[in-house]
Design a binder for these strands. Sequence first.
DNA 1: AATTAAATATGACCTTTATCATATACTGAA
DNA 2: TTCAGTATATGATAAAGGTCATATTTAATT
Lengths: 191, 191
Amino acid sequence: MPYSPQHKQQSRQKILASAYRLFTLNGYERITINQIMADCQLTRGGFYAHFSSKSELYTEALKFGTTASPLVLGNLKSLSTQHWLTELFDGYLSIEHIRGIKPCPLAFLSADITTRDRAAKAAYKNAFLGMNKRLLALVKQVMPFTTEQMFALSSMMIGTVAIAKTINDDKVALQLLRATRKTIRLTLNGI
Amino acid sequence: MPYSPQHKQQSRQKILASAYRLFTLNGYERITINQIMADCQLTRGGFYAHFSSKSELYTEALKFGTTASPLVLGNLKSLSTQHWLTELFDGYLSIEHIRGIKPCPLAFLSADITTRDRAAKAAYKNAFLGMNKRLLALVKQVMPFTTEQMFALSSMMIGTVAIAKTINDDKVALQLLRATRKTIRLTLNGI
DNA sequence: AATTAAATATGACCTTTATCATATACTGAA
DNA sequence: TTCAGTATATGATAAAGGTCATATTTAATT
C-alpha cells in the first residue's frame, strides 16, 4: 500500500480549500483548474482523480467553505451576545473584509450561481438559509426578531458588501459600509 | 455614399441593446461576441467595426443600459409620489423582475464587475450613485431621508433580488422578496 | 444602370482551457 | 531492496472563442 491512507483525502481538502478561495474571489469562469491545482502545489492532470468535473468541484468547494461556517461559531464566547453581534456585523461590513482574501461567497457568488447548475444553486441556498438560521438564533437572544426581518437584514449586508467590493474608490466604499452599519445598529435597537 | 448615414449608428445601438441584455443575464464570460451579434441579426466579424474589444463593449453596454434609466423616470406621473414609490419598490422586488429578461444590472453584475477593468467599475459605480440620487430625491418628497439611509435601502433591495435570483425554489424566493417589501414599507413610515 | 465607399459577412488563426490517456513517483509491506 | 498499487505529473486532444484580413453586400449618387 503506497502513500499513507489519508494522503488522497489531504490532497482533496487542499484542492477544496484553494478552489473555495479562488472561486469566491474570481467566479467560476475566471479560474481554471490549472490555477487551482497550482495553488495547492499540484498539477492539472491529477485533478480528475478527485473530482469528475470543474462544475462538481465548484459545488463541493462551496459546500466546503460554507458548512460549519466560522462566521457564526466564533470564539468570542467571553463577550455578551450583544457585543458579539456588534463585532460580527462590523467585521462583515468592513473594508478589510471586502478587500481581503476571505470574502463572503454569498455576496460574491450570487450572480455567478445564477448561471450554474442545480447542485451549485442548492449549495448556495443552503448556505444562505443556514446563515440566516444561525444569525437569527443569536439576534433573538437580544431582542424579538422574525425570520422575515432576518432575511431583510442579511440581504442588506450581503448587498452592501457585494456593491462595496465593486467600487474602486475607498471613500465611497467606506461611506456605503458605514451607512449599513449605522442602519443595522438602529434596527437592532441601538446595540 | 452607401447605406443611409444613420445605418451604422443603428447597428451600434442594436449591438448595445443586445449586449446589455445578454451580459446582464449571463455575465461577461458566459456570453460570446458571436451570441451578441447573432442576437441582433449580425455576424461576428463586423463587430470590430463598432467596438475595439469585448471588454469595451461590456462597459459601453452597461452605460447604455443604465444612463437615463427608465426605472425612475417612469410614466406614472398621475400617481402621487408615495403611490409611485410603492409601485416602484414592489415591482423591483417582484418575482417577475428576477425571472424576467430585464433584470437589474446592479444586482446581477456586482460580482462580475469585480473582476473587470477600471472602466467597467466606473460605469457600475456611476449607475449605483445615479440611481441612489434619483431615488433619494423622490423619497425626500415623502419624508426626511439621508444619503446614508438611501444607500442602506438600495443595498437591501439589490441584495435581495441578487439572492432571490439564485434560488431555484419559488417559495423561498417569494418569502425573501416579501420580507424586504415589508421592511421597506416600515422604513418608509408605512407608505 | 453603373459606380463607389462604407457596412457587414466569411473564413482562418491563435490562444486558452477542460478533459483524458499514459507515464512516473511515491511509500508501506515483503 | 524489491514489489505493488495508489497518487500525481506529463503530454496530447479537441473545442471554444476573441481577433483580424479579406471578400461581399448595400444604397446614395452620377
